[in-house]
């Protein structure tokens, strides 16, 4: 067990350590200004010195990202189910959803501030907007690929439309939905931080997005790197939770979880 965990963890850890060493060596060798590229040691120091601030920021950003992700997951699964059940709605709404997906988030983020005001609501709205589409598309694809033989089985047994959705199409689509949720988890953190850039309060309790902008203003590149590291960690945790959920749901019957 420990041996296996070691075998799984060794390659990525080794690669990361080698990259850090190369980075540190390059900073020593070429000695760029601290402002351009901070050394890994400097970033580690920023992480340590700003740990309480960074942890508070990670908590705030994590909450917004999780809320946005949960909303996107709920809306995406329901909307995907509705679209998969109606050819008319799918033809009518799916192209519009695809088009909305193309709208650059950064361009509409200031608008979100106008609509939702300063604070977490803007970050959450921004997270929902970017993470909704992968869930919607994955749900729709998963449900539309339901085995026609099983659909016929349900029809032969006079299942209601709701029974067919709950007992057949939804479980059938879960592997696909989990994939969509994994993608959405990372995007939700990105969306949250973009929302924070334009619409979060600065101050003692500032989220990661604000930490990044204020560190940039103070030419604290090491702090920017530290904040980016924290943001990635938040995304990684959200991704991990989703993957764990997928594993719990699928481990007994689906090849993707074995």
């Amino acid at each position: 067990m420990i041996r296996r965990a070691f075998h799984a963890a060794f390659p990525p850890v080794a690669v990361v350590l080698a990259l850090l060493a190369a980075w540190q060596a390059a900073v020593w060798a070429f000695a760029p200004s601290e402002f351009l590229v901070p050394a890994p040691m400097a970033v580690a120091r920023a992480l340590r010195d700003g740990s309480s601030q960074l942890l508070a920021a990670a908590w705030l950003t994590g909450l917004s990202a999780a809320a946005g992700f949960a909303l996107a997951a709920g809306i995406g699964i329901v909307l995907g189910s509705v679209l998969s059940a109606s050819r008319f709605l799918m033809r009518g709404l799916y192209p519009i959803a695809t088009l909305l997906q193309m709208v650059p988030l950064v361009a509409i983020a200031p608008l979100l501030v106008v609509w939702c005001g300063y604070g977490a609501r803007t970050s959450i709205a921004s997270a929902v907007i970017v993470s909704l589409f992968p869930v919607l598309a994955a749900t729709l694809d998963g449900m539309r690929s339901t085995d026609p033989g099983l659909v016929e089985l349900f029809q032969v047994n006079r299942a209601t439309r709701l029974q067919r959705w709950w007992k057949l199409e939804l479980p059938w689509a879960i592997p696909s939905i989990v994939t969509g949720l994994r993608i959405a988890a990372g995007l939700a953190v990105i969306g949250t931080i973009v929302g924070e850039f334009v619409g979060a309060f600065a101050g003692e309790d500032a989220p990661v997005g604000i930490l990044i902008t204020s560190a940039l203003r103070e030419n604290r590149t090491d702090m920017v790197f530290a904040a980016v590291f924290v943001a990635s960690a938040v995304g990684f945790v959200l991704f991990g939770v989703v993957s764990l959920l997928g594993w719990v749901l699928l481990r007994r019957w689906h090849a993707s979880a074995r």
Partner: peptide, 13 residues
């Protein structure tokens, strides 16, 4: 009436 098909058509979960 009940049907059985060429494939078992069992729900894998």
């Amino acid at each position: 009436t009940a049907f059985a098909f060429q494939e078992p058509r069992l729900l894998p979960w």
